[in-house]
Amino acid sequence: MSARTRETGEMFGPRMTLFADVLALGVVTALACLPLITAPAALSTACALVRDTRDDKPVTARRYVALLRERLRPGDLVAGAVALAGALLFAADLALAGAGLPGARVFAVTAAVIGACAVIVGLRACARPESIGDWRAAARAAAGDSARDVGGSALVLLALAASVLCAWMMLPLAFLVPGPLVMALTAIDVRHVRMPHGETA
C-alpha cells in the first residue's frame, strides 16, 4: 500500500483502513469456505487480494467475489476435494489411535506430525501466486518453501493456532479470523521471496 498521510477529516489512516478491509475479507472468505470443497480456492483468492494491495488495488468484498467466480474451475474443486479427503482421513486416524489399539501413542504422534506438515504445505500453497492457475506447481513450491524456510513454517502454525484459539474462545470470531490468517500467510510468503537465497529465519 502507498504510505499516504491521513487526509483532513479522515478518521483512520491507511493502515487501519487495510485492517478493516482484512476483517471484511475474513467474513466473505469464511462464507466462501462453508462448502468446504471451495476452501483452497477461497483462501488463495483472499491471499491474491491482499498481495495486490502492494499495487494499491482495493480489498473489497465485491472484487473478492468477482475473482472467486473466475477461480472456481475443476482444478480448484479437485484441490478442495483432496484437502477435504485428507482432513477426514486424519480425523479417522486419530479416532483409531484413541480406540486403545497397540502402539496408538506412537501412531498418534506420527499422524500429528504428518498432519501438521500437510497443513503447512497446504496453507503455504494457498499463499503462492501459482495457486491462481496451477495447484500442482503451487504445492511443489510450497513444499520447497516449507523445507527451506523453517521459521516461516513455524509462523504458519502459530498463525493457524491463533486463529483456531480466537474462534474457539468466541464463536462469532470464526467469521473474522480468515482475514488475519490470510494476511499472515501472504506476509510470510512475501517475506520468504524477499529473503536472500538460502537464508532462513
Rank of each mutant, 00 (worst) to 15 (best):
L49E: 08
G144K: 04
R73N: 03
C166F: 13
R148V: 00
A66Q: 04
L160A: 06
G115E: 05
L158D: 05
V50F: 11
A161V: 14
V82Q: 04
V164M: 10
L72Q: 00
R69L: 07
R136K: 09
L88Q: 13
T60H: 06
G122D: 03
R105D: 15
P102R: 03
L67S: 06
R136Q: 11
A91Y: 06
V106Q: 10
D145L: 03
S146C: 08
K57Y: 12
L67G: 03
R51V: 12
L77Q: 03
A81R: 15
D149A: 02
A147K: 00
A154Q: 08
W135D: 03
K57N: 15
S146W: 03
V109A: 10
V113D: 02
L84N: 02
V78C: 08
A116C: 10
R124Q: 09
W135M: 04
T53Q: 10
A167F: 08
L67H: 06
P172A: 10
A137V: 08
F175T: 08
R69P: 01
D149F: 09
S163C: 10
A118M: 14
V82T: 05
L123A: 10
M170S: 15
A118D: 04
V121E: 00
A99S: 15
V82C: 06
A139W: 11
L123N: 08
V164C: 09
R69V: 11
A95K: 07
V164F: 14
L160V: 12
P129Q: 08
L123Q: 13
I132R: 04
V65R: 07
G75F: 01
D56G: 11
C166Q: 06
A92W: 11
A159G: 07
A159M: 07
D52Q: 08
P58K: 06
A127S: 14
P129A: 07
V150D: 01
L72I: 00
A61P: 14
A85M: 15
G75P: 02
A91D: 05
G115R: 13
L67D: 05
A91H: 09
L158E: 04
A159L: 11
A139R: 04
D145Q: 02
A147V: 00
L77G: 02
A162T: 11
A112F: 13
L173D: 13
A91L: 10
F175M: 06
A85T: 14
C166R: 03
D93M: 15
A147Y: 00
M170E: 15
A95T: 13
L68G: 00
G115Q: 09
A61W: 15
V150P: 02
L96K: 03
T60Y: 08
A97D: 12
C166Y: 05
D76N: 07
I114Y: 07
D134H: 09
V150G: 02
A143P: 01
A97F: 15
D149K: 02
T60F: 07
R140D: 01
A112D: 06
